[in-house]
């Protein structure tokens, strides 16, 4: 044991030396960004809303005499507690999820412009690249935390308030409660790739516009336009390119013979959007003349 720990310590030594030399590393900057974010009232309020809103929504929906039949699973909200989380997922994907992530991602770069603090943060001797990746990581981590909190709160409140009856799937088949639980969880998880892509989009808009208002509002508007384009007939070949299509890929999990094609293509679409948006954002920030303010 002692012989093993010595080389590990020796391996770590250069890193320690690196930090004392004044380079905090991406993780160091990331820790700072998380601390900054945690101190912001907006981040706390967002998480609190994610925690509380589903409970209110479930209670209100449970009290409805007429279930919202226009949305998938809306007609089954009184029959199974597993229908509600799927109804809410379908609704959240329309604009709620893009908004929740944009609240932080659309602001995390632009607020340095708003407060004129770019020069200050760059004198912390962290490079621009390190700052970029640290801020991006922070925004992505926040998006995932939001998704987890929202999913957990929605599922728990639905099961506690409505129950865990068997669910009627999208082929009319009866899904046993335990299977339904797994499928609902998986369905919420499939929202992660497009959510991260929306986060990247918000980062790009935040970096380029230098305005938190644009960074927060524009991704929501873009999401709604994509939703509209995706619902039109005749231009369905565009659907795979849209960032809102992957939000509907979970439908394949709820039919009798599950299909995963839309999940795969949705993951690819999300990855492409993510890479393009982050590349553009990175080059934009890298080339910027910050001394000018």
């Amino acid at each position: 044991m002692t012989t093993q720990s010595t080389p590990t310590h020796a391996d770590a030594a250069p890193v320690v030396g690196h930090i004392t030399a004044g380079r905090p590393g991406v993780l160091g900057v990331f820790a700072w960004e998380v601390t900054k974010l945690a101190a912001r009232a907006r981040a706390r309020w967002t998480l609190l809303v994610c925690l509380a809103a589903p409970v209110v929504l479930v209670v209100v929906l449970k009290g409805q005499q007429r279930p919202p039949k226009d949305s998938l699973f809306g007609r089954y909200i009184h029959e199974s507690g597993w229908a509600l989380p799927l109804l809410i997922l379908g609704f959240a994907a329309q604009w709620v999820l893009p908004l929740l992530t944009a609240l932080v991602a659309g602001d995390i770069f632009a607020n340095e412009d708003q407060h004129g603090t770019w020069k200050t943060v760059l004198t912390r001797s962290a490079s621009r690249a390190q700052l970029f990746w640290a801020k991006t990581l922070t925004a992505m981590a926040f998006a995932l935390v939001v998704l987890v909190v929202l999913a957990a709160s929605t599922m728990l409140s639905s099961v506690l308030i409505v129950g865990h009856q068997e669910l009627v799937g999208l082929s009319g088949q009866l899904v046993p409660s335990a299977t339904a639980a797994r499928l609902v969880l998986a369905s919420w998880a499939t929202a992660a790739p497009p959510l991260l892509a929306f986060t990247a989009l918000a980062i790009l808009l935040s970096v380029r516009s230098r305005s938190p208002a644009v960074g927060i509002a524009a991704p929501v508007v873009i999401g709604m336009v994509m939703q509209l384009v995706g619902s039109l007939g005749g231009i369905e070949a565009l659907r795979p390119l849209l960032l809102t299509t992957p939000f509907e890929a979970w439908h394949g999990l709820l039919v009798e013979h599950r299909f995963y094609g839309p999940l795969v293509s949705g993951a690819i679409t999300s990855a492409v959007w993510c890479i393009v948006a982050l590349t553009l954002a990175f080059t934009s920030l890298h080339r910027r003349d910050i001394t000018e303010g």
Binding site: K69, L72, L170, G261
Partner: peptide
């Protein structure tokens, strides 16, 4: 009245 979905690659 009921809802259903099908595989777009089916």
């Amino acid at each position: 009245e009921f809802d259903g979905c099908f595989d777009p690659n089916g």
